[in-house]
Structures are given as structure tokens and as C-alpha cells.
């Protein structure tokens, strides 16, 4: 999963401090793996260097300075591109896809569109495997079948998520 894109996506709804970003990330996506503050800091430095975020303000306090980050136009374009690009079909994609779908809902983009594009990419992979299977020997068939069943499981998750988008939209808005 791309932490940079996820943090950028979270910034789309408005500027936030690094600590707020970490909290929002952990709450939405980090159920079993909360983000280290160091990861937030290094990611934001990289995004800043690449012009995808800018410093919106600095608060001086008793402790260290607190930078507030805002997403730039280039950052929004980057999130848009990431969300629109299907993931390479491979097992255990769910966390990335889940993140993309939730971010799309959070930023009022078309989440069904992401699922349709991904389904198409998976089917493209399944067509190649099916073709190889038709032309191959039994060993080819069994190897391709293994990959096909994994992709099919992903696709069933995509269909189920598509059917539950309205509920998910309500849940993430809370």
C-alpha cells in the first residue's frame, strides 16, 4: 500500500498537522498496523520535496514546531492518477484496494469506477491465463488454475465491495 498516496488523499479534505494525519490514517486504515510518527515525518518530507504538499502554517508551542500541511494541485493530480490506475492483479491486494475505495469515498470520487477498472484489469489477467491453459499441457493447466482461483477470489471481493458501497460510504463518513 502506498502510504504517501494515502496521506495525500487524507489531506484532500483540508490541511492537517502530521499528528492529525497519523491519527486519521490509524483510524481508517491502520487497524492492525498503526503508522510510526517517523514514517509520517519522512513521508511528508518527501511529498514536500516533490511539490505534492506545502506547509500551510507552523505553530510554535512549548514542544517542537508543528507544521500544518496542505495538498497542492500537483498532489491532487497525483492522488487522482493513483486511484485511477488499476493494481497489478496479484494475491493479497485487498489492503491497497480497500484504501483506494475508502479514499475515493472520502474525497467524493466515484468508488464504483475504481472497482470496475480493477475488475477489468483482473479479467485481462484471467484471459491470458485461460488462453495459456487452453494451449498447455496438464501441468500448465494446474498452474494456471491456481492463479485463476486466486484472481477469482479477488474478483468476488470486488463484487461484494461494489454491492456494499453505500454502506461503506455511510461508515467512512462517520
Amino acid at each position: 500500500m502506498s502510504i504517501g498516496h494515502t496521506l495525500l488523499g487524507l489531506l484532500e479534505s483540508g490541511p492537517r498537522h502530521g499528528y492529525d494525519l497519523k491519527r486519521a490514517f490509524d483510524e481508517k486504515f491502520g487497524h492492525d498496523r498503526p503508522l510510526h510518527y517517523g514514517q509520517v515525518y519522512s513521508t511528508m518530507s518527501r511529498l514536500l520535496k516533490n511539490g505534492l504538499v506545502e506547509v500551510d502554517g507552523i505553530e510554535a508551542g512549548g514542544g517542537p514546531e508543528r507544521k500544518r500541511y496542505a495538498i497542492t494541485e500537483a498532489g491532487i493530480t497525483d492522488v487522482e492518477r493513483w486511484l485511477a490506475t488499476p493494481e497489478k492483479p496479484e494475491p493479497y491486494l485487498q489492503s491497497t484496494l480497500y484504501t483506494k475505495v475508502v479514499l475515493a469515498l472520502l474525497t467524493s470520487r466515484d468508488a464504483a469506477d475504481i472497482l470496475d477498472t480493477q475488475r477489468s484489469e483482473h479479467l485481462r489477467g484471467m484471459r491470458i491465463l485461460t488462453d495459456r491453459k487452453r494451449k498447455g499441457d496438464l501441468a500448465d493447466q494446474l498452474i494456471c488454475d491456481h492463479a485463476l482461483f486466486h484472481l477469482e477470489a479477488d474478483l468476488r471481493w470486488l463484487e461484494l465491495t461494489a454491492a456494499r458501497l453505500d454502506k461503506l460510504r455511510e461508515a467512512v463518513a462517520r
Binding site: 483482473h122 479479467l123 484471467m126 484471459r127 491465463l129 485461460t130 485463476l148 484472481l151 477469482e152 474478483l155 468476488r156
Partner: peptide
């Protein structure tokens, strides 16, 4: 999906 994979 496995059936659709036979399509173009």
C-alpha cells in the same frame, strides 16, 4: 469471472 475469461 472464470466464465467471462473466455470472452474477448
Amino acid at each position: 469471472a472464470r466464465v467471462a475469461a473466455y470472452s474477448d
